[in-house]
Amino acid sequence: MDKISTHLWFDGEAEQAADFYTGLFPDSHIASITYAPTDYPSGKAGDVLQIAFTLGGRSFLALNGGPSFPFTEAISLSIDCRDQEEVDRYWEALSAHPENEQCGWVKDRFGLSWQIIPRALPELLADPDRAKAKRAMDAMMTMKKINIAVLQAAAKAETTS
């Protein structure tokens, strides 16, 4: 367990979520499952209470805490994708609400938000040529799933005045 880990609150789906996430990301596994020793507001004795798991080498905890605190977009997990193939793979696996997605952000079937970001995007946005960076950002703002080729073409485009 890392000194600091991310703790995720689920409404009875902690085990399903941990299984799904650990099956999706390399270097991931479930470390332990804690069962409730007694009845509690969101479950019964013997139910899965908490799961410790690792995603991509980082520690997470999943709690079956009940419906009181659903996920919001204020917190998201960001995936560093090396290429379009990886963007496409994670997008397919995680996108549960395509009509609501924007700028590389998706919400999965458990309500958790993810940013599926190709390495090329922050590189383009940080380009010292600010006009080039602006063109890349303007293109990104029109996208749901990030398309690296379209971003690169927009960044290279010259405007004539």
Results as ranks from 00 to 15, higher is better:
8 L>Q: 09
120 A>G: 01
11 D>K: 06
95 S>E: 05
129 D>N: 11
132 K>F: 02
6 T>H: 07
84 Q>C: 07
102 Q>K: 08
34 T>P: 05
92 E>W: 03
7 H>R: 04
98 P>I: 00
21 Y>R: 03
104 G>F: 10
50 Q>E: 11
131 A>M: 11
96 A>M: 10
150 V>P: 07
82 R>T: 06
100 N>H: 12
62 A>T: 10
122 P>I: 09
121 L>P: 12
71 F>C: 12
84 Q>A: 04
53 F>V: 02
107 K>S: 09
146 I>W: 02
51 I>S: 04
37 P>M: 08
147 N>Q: 01
24 L>D: 12
43 G>V: 15
74 A>F: 05
90 Y>N: 02
85 E>A: 11
5 S>M: 05
11 D>F: 04
25 F>M: 04
22 T>P: 09
57 G>A: 10
110 F>D: 15
91 W>A: 13
50 Q>A: 08
119 R>S: 13
51 I>T: 05
131 A>W: 08
10 F>E: 01
136 A>W: 11
40 Y>E: 05
21 Y>A: 05
74 A>L: 08
77 L>T: 00
142 T>N: 02
60 F>M: 07
50 Q>C: 10
100 N>D: 08
88 D>P: 01
56 G>S: 03
108 D>N: 11
78 S>K: 13
6 T>N: 07
63 L>W: 13
119 R>H: 15
6 T>P: 03
138 D>Q: 12
10 F>K: 01
21 Y>G: 06
118 P>K: 14
146 I>P: 06
118 P>D: 12
128 P>C: 09
34 T>D: 11
75 I>C: 14
10 F>T: 12
92 E>H: 06
67 P>H: 05
107 K>T: 03
82 R>D: 04
9 W>P: 10
